[in-house]
Design a protein around this nucleic acid. Structure first.
Lengths: 314, 314
DNA sequence: TTGAGACAATCACTTATGCTTATGTTTATG
DNA sequence: CATAAACATAAGCATAAGTGATTGTCTCAA
C-alpha cells in the first residue's frame, strides 16, 4: 500500500546521498564513497524523489554521468545549507560541553563584585577565551534567585545563610565582618593585636553603607553586641567609605571581601565579639542540567574561595 | 553491538520530535501530537541524545514537565532553522514545478528581440508574475548554443536551419525577408501589388546592417538572385535603418520580424524571387529535464509563432 | 549491425531499525 | 504510605533499508 509522501519525509541521509551523487556524477561512485551498494543508492534516490515529488537526476543511461534536474539543483542548495547548519550545531555543542565558548550569565552582588569576582572572571577568561561572560548585579538575594529560576542567568552568588529547595547551593566559605579604623586614631590604639573590642564602637561616629541587606546584617550584629550605631556618613561605594575612614571621619564595619587591603591609610581589625559572618554561596538551578561553563565557574569559585574566604564554620 | 554515533546520524524526524517534546513539555504529549506511542518518543529522544552525545532533556520524574538542557536548547534552535529551510525548499520546489516563480534565462537575437520576444515576455509575466526573466542577446547561433549547453541559459531562440544532436529544436515558423522602400520612391512605384521584383534592387543604393549572420544571409540571397548589393549606409539598429529608408536614402532588406509595421513613411514588399526565409527555432538541452518555466515559455512561443510567423515551409 | 562495457532499475532475500505493548522505576501528592 | 503520573526498558513484531544477482538501456567500437 502506497503512502503519499511529502517533504517532511525527507531525511538528512537522503540529502547526503543527493550531494554525493551530484558530486560523483554516478550512483556507483556515490555508493563507493558512502560505503553502500549501488542498489541502495538507487533506492535512496528513488525515495527522495518520491518525497519531493520530482525527478532529481537525469539518468542518460550508459556510461554518461547522471546530472541534476532543475529541481535537483534547487534541492541540492538547500541540502548544503542544512548540512552546514548541522555542522554548526555540532561545533556549538562541543563548545558548549567544553565550556570554552558560548555565553555564561552570572548573578552577583556588591561585595563579591569588588575583588572575588574580578579574579574569578580573569581565571575563567584564561581558561575559556571565547566564552562570553555576562554579569548581572542585584542587591537582594531574592532578585538573583528569581533571575536564576527564570533562566535569565546560569549561576549566581548569594549571601548565606540561604535555603531554597529549587536551588543547588555551594558554600564557598565565610566572609568575616571587619572594622576599618583610621590609621592613627584613638580606636586604632585601643585595638589589641588584630582585634578590636566591639564595645569600643559604642559611641563612635560611624561610616556606613546605604540601607541594604549587608548593612542590615551589620547593624543587627552591632545591636546583638549591645551597640546602636550612629552613622555620620553613608555611601554606596566601598571606595568612598574607605576614603572617609582614611580621612579620619570614623570607623566602618565592612565585609572583608569588600575591603581594599592595599590601603595604608587604614588599619583593619577583627571584632570581638565578632558579628556573625556571612556565608558566601554560589547557586545553580536544582534538577536541570547546568551549563558546563557554569560548572567550571563553580569549580574555579570553590578554589578561589579556599584562598580568599574562611572555611565554612560548622 | 554498539556503534559510535555522531551528529551525522541525526535525522530530521528526530529534530521534529525534539521540537514537539520541547513544545509539549512531555513525552506523552509529544507522542499524542505525533501519533506515536510514548515508548517511541522515548527511544527517539534516546537515539538523538546518543547521536549528539549530550542529554537534551531533563526528566524530573513524576508529573513535572521535561525541560531542555542547555544542549537541548542549542540544538532546538538549529532544528527550527533546519525545518524552516526544508519548508523553504518545499515552497521553491512547488514554485519551480508550477513555473510561476524563480528564474528563467532566455537566449535571443536581434530580430526576435524587437517584436516577438517583448510580446512573449509580456504573456509570460501575465502567467507567472513572480518569475524572474533574464534575457541574453547574442548575434551568433553558436554563442547561444554554447550558453545553453553550459547551462547559462535555460532556453534560446535560434535561426534555422540549425541542427545539433545535443539540442531539442522546436520550429516556430519562418520569418520572410521583405524589402522596405521609401513611400514615394521610384522603386515603390515599380512594385506590383505586394511584391517587388528582386532584380529592381540591382543598382539601388541600399541600407544595410553591419555584418552579421542575418546580413550575410540577405547578401547571399541577393547574390543568388544575381544581384551584388551596394550599401550606402549601415546601422546596427533596426529603427535607424528604417529611418534612413523613410528619409529616401534607399531600400533595405530586413527580416519581417524586425520591421516596425506602424511606420507610414515606408512601404513593405515581398521579394520575387524571394530570399530563402529564416526558420525561427527555439532550443532546449536534449536529455536533461527542462525547467518547467522553460517549457511554458516554449508553449507560449509556439502559440505566438502561429500568429506572427509563416507556417514551416516543408 | 552487432557485441561489449558501463550503468541504473528491479527483484528476492536478509538484516536492521523502529514501533507497540507490557512492565518496571521514579517522583510528587493526598 | 499508597496512588497516580510520567519516563525507561524489554520483548516481539512489522517495516524499512541494505545486499547480490539479474535485467534493461545506452554508448562506443569493431
Amino acid at each position: 500500500m502506497l503512502m503519499f509522501m511529502g517533504i517532511e519525509d525527507v531525511e538528512i541521509k537522503h540529502l547526503a546521498t543527493l550531494r554525493t551523487v551530484a558530486d560523483e556524477g554516478s550512483f556507483i561512485g556515490a555508493a563507493d564513497v558512502l560505503g553502500y551498494s549501488q542498489a541502495a543508492i538507487s533506492q535512496q534516490v528513488a525515495s527522495l524523489e518520491r518525497a519531493v515529488g520530482q525527478r532529481l537526476f537525469d539518468r542518460p543511461g550508459g556510461p554518461r554521468p547522471v546530472t541534476l534536474t532543475p529541481a535537483g539543483r534547487l534541492l541540492l542548495g538547500h541540502a548544503k545549507a542544512i548540512h552546514a547548519r548541522l555542522a554548526l550545531a555540532d561545533r556549538e555543542l562541543s563548545d558548549l560541553v567544553s565550556g570554552t565558548a558560548g555565553r555564561l550569565r552570572c548573578g552577583t552582588f556588591q561585595s563579591v563584585s569588588v575583588q572575588l569576582l574580578p579574579e574569578l572572571v580573569r581565571e575563567m577568561r584564561a581558561a575559556a577565551p571565547n566564552l562570553d561572560i555576562h554579569l548581572v548585579e542585584q542587591d537582594r538575594n531574592d532578585s538573583l534567585v528569581d533571575l536564576l529560576i527564570a533562566g535569565e542567568i546560569d549561576v549566581t552568588f548569594l549571601e548565606g545563610p540561604y535555603d531554597d529547595s529549587r536551588l543547588e547551593l555551594i558554600e564557598l566559605g565565610t566572609d568575616p565582618f571587619v572594622v576599618l579604623l583610621p590609621k592613627d586614631s584613638e580606636l586604632a590604639r585601643l585595638a589589641k593585636g588584630r582585634t578590636l573590642a566591639t564595645e569600643h564602637l559604642a559611641h563612635a561616629p560611624m561610616i556606613g553603607e546605604h540601607p541594604c541587606s549587608t548593612q542590615e546584617r551589620i547593624d543587627q550584629g552591632l545591636r546583638d553586641a549591645g551597640i546602636t550605631p550612629r552613622y555620620v556618613f553613608r555611601a554606596n561605594d566601598n571606595g568612598a567609605m574607605q576614603g572617609m575612614v582614611r580621612a579620619g571621619l570614623g570607623p566602618a564595619v565592612m565585609p572583608m571581601l569588600a575591603v581594599d587591603t592595599a590601603d595604608t591609610g587604614i588599619v583593619i581589625k577583627a571584632l570581638d565579639p565578632p558579628i556573625e559572618p556571612r556565608m558566601i554561596l554560589i547557586a545553580l538551578r536544582k534538577g536541570s542540567t547546568p551549563l558546563p561553563a557554569a560548572e567550571q565557574f563553580v569549580r574555579i569559585a570553590k578554589h578561589e574561595g579556599r584562598k580568599r574566604l574562611s572555611r565554612p564554620a560548622r
